[in-house]
């Protein structure tokens, strides 16, 4: 008998020995939504609070002012800045002195030589202060957001939801086909100094 057959057989025998306990109905009467719609000013304020609490720097930007905010966020960065291949047009600040390196499968050692990374995100959860990345073209491969010391992440206002149940479906979309990493800016990590730019839509 293969290990697979044996383990599955043991599970069936165990469930039989325990008297085939029926699967109970799962009560889902916890809050599945918050009290504000995605992108509400209250949520942006809450997210900002949480991120600042985690020692991230938060800058506000109008939809057409992302590049300007990114420029400010990257002021002190002197080395190369890696960006995903699908970085939206208009996010890269033209006046930036730093070299732009578009990721084309850089090795860990190559990434180690970059100073910062600029990406978008899949969603942000205000209550927990979490930003989720799912590997979409504006975020790129997971590795590029891990190695550089500074991560500038553009969060669109409409991507900000209140609760965990509202946020998790937003990063499943690509989990089926791509990998995703859900991460949070961290103060204690000298590897990932975060600059989050929340861009207001329109």
């Amino acid at each position: 008998m293969t290990a697979r057959e044996e383990v599955l057989g043991r599970i069936r025998a165990a469930n039989a020995a325990a008297g085939h306990p029926p699967p109970p109905d799962v009560p889902r009467d916890y809050h599945r939504t918050g009290s504000h719609p995605a992108g509400a000013p209250e949520l942006l304020a809450l997210l900002r609070d949480r991120l600042v609490d985690y020692k991230a720097t938060v800058l506000d930007a109008a939809a057409d002012g992302v590049a300007e905010a990114v420029q400010i966020a990257l002021t002190e960065v002197t080395g190369p800045v890696v960006v995903p291949p699908g970085l939206p047009a208009g996010w890269w600040p033209d006046g930036l002195a730093a070299t732009r390196v578009t990721d084309d499968g850089l090795s860990p050692a190559d990434l180690d030589a970059t100073a910062a990374v600029l990406t978008g995100c899949a969603a942000a959860c205000a209550v927990t202060g979490t930003i989720a990345l799912d590997g979409s073209p504006d975020q790129g491969r997971r590795a590029i957001t891990l190695v550089p010391d500074v991560h500038v992440c553009v969060v669109r206002a409409e991507q900000v939801v209140e609760t965990v149940p509202e946020s998790s479906p937003r990063w499943i979309r690509r989990a089926r086909s791509r990998s995703s990493a859900d991460r949070r800016p961290r103060a204690t990590s000298s590897w990932s100094g975060w600059r989050a730019c929340t861009a207001r839509a329109r």
Partner: peptide
Amino acid sequence: RMNPYTSAWTGVTPGDG
């Protein structure tokens, strides 16, 4: 409220990880 890092992966993603 949420652990600092959560990683999720599904099988193999070509070119990523």
